[in-house]
């Protein structure tokens, strides 16, 4: 089976399973979307009318089938709040979340790679201990706690950066303002990953540094830096790549928090609002999107791994 076919199968299976599970979960919810849509002052008759309009009286499986049929035709339903198509709401929010997550990964890797490499170079040296203590603290700090500290220091005390990203311009329209608003949420999201990456890279590199080919490179009189980056780091980078794939799940959860805390108009905040307002078409859309994103990210990481690591590349022949 070709890679694309495999991806498609996996996508369909996961999307079906996740959407079915969430659909059942939402159907079991105590709230009444029809009442929510009709508004406070609506008469019971009006609510009943809307209910049948929305197809809420149909049996569960029929409703799921209807929803699925809609999705296949590109119709994700309509938000009960402002009558906009769910796909548009999600489409508008999506770029912000993607940007946030990419920014967070860049920050995390940008900090973790040098820190992990220098830690591994002298295990138990002063830098290693410092990095160990800092990453220990980072792992112990829940993202929302860190976010509050960051907001307090950089937005309230120093007043360098905005505390909320409510009027977030697109990255391409006004990159400076966009980044100014995104930097705190991205840092919040990045911190836990930094700790994970530093520890991972450190352990992996310490092991790699004792491997035969690294010792051989050392014996050839290469400089410390060359041995580290050209010989030891490259194989270790592959473990890091795998880890970036694995952290995606945590990142999605973290985005929920970071977006809520800094009012970033992204998918996470959209989902939180939608759940509170019983805007279930939007919730379902987000859930579907997340599961697809999850599968695709892991697929891309796998694919990158295959392309970049010659051992895998030739081994699969």
């Amino acid at each position: 089976m070709s890679a694309v076919a495999r991806l498609t199968v996996r996508l369909v299976v996961v999307a079906l399973a996740v959407s079915f599970a969430s659909f059942s979960l939402l159907s079991a919810a105590p709230g009444d979307p029809a009442a929510a849509k009709a508004g406070f002052s609506a008469t019971p008759e009006r609510v009943a009318e809307i209910r049948s309009e929305l197809g809420l009286d149909d049996p569960f499986l029929v409703r799921y089938g209807d929803w699925l049929a809609g999705v296949v035709q590109g119709n994700f339903g309509t938000s009960v709040l402002n009558q906009q198509p769910a796909s548009k709401l999600i489409g508008d929010a999506m770029p912000h979340t993607v940007e946030l997550m990419i920014l967070a990964q860049i920050i995390a890797l940008g900090v973790a790679i040098p820190a992990g490499v220098y830690s591994a170079q002298r295990p138990n040296g002063w830098f290693d201990r410092l990095a160990g203590a800092v990453s220990f603290g980072m792992l112990a700090t829940p993202p929302f706690v860190l976010g509050i500290y960051l907001a307090f220091v950089f937005a309230v005390r120093l007043d360098w950066l905005p505390a909320v990203a409510t009027d977030l311009p697109g990255l391409l329209e006004d990159p400076v303002e966009n980044l100014r608003q995104m930097i705190l949420p991205a840092l919040t999201l990045a911190s836990g990953m930094v700790a994970i990456y530093v520890r991972l890279l450190r352990t992996d590199l310490i092991e790699t540094l004792q491997q035969d080919f690294v010792l051989m490179a050392q014996s050839r009189g290469y400089s410390r830096r060359r041995v580290l980056w050209r010989h030891a780091f490259r194989p270790s980078a592959f473990s890091l790549l795998t880890a970036t794939g694995l952290t995606t799940a945590g990142l999605l959860g973290g985005a929920l928090i970071a977006e809520t805390l800094f009012a970033v108009p992204g998918v996470g905040r959209l989902a939180v609002t939608a759940i509170f307002t019983e805007d279930y078409d939007v919730v379902m859309g987000v859930v579907l999107l997340l599961s697809v994103a999850f599968v695709v990210t892991n697929f891309v990481v796998d694919a990158l791994y295959t392309v970049l690591d010659p051992r895998v590349r030739h081994g699969s022949r």
Partner: peptide, 8 residues
Amino acid sequence: TALNPVRT
């Protein structure tokens, strides 16, 4: 094990 596995 003596050769770097990811370089030619």
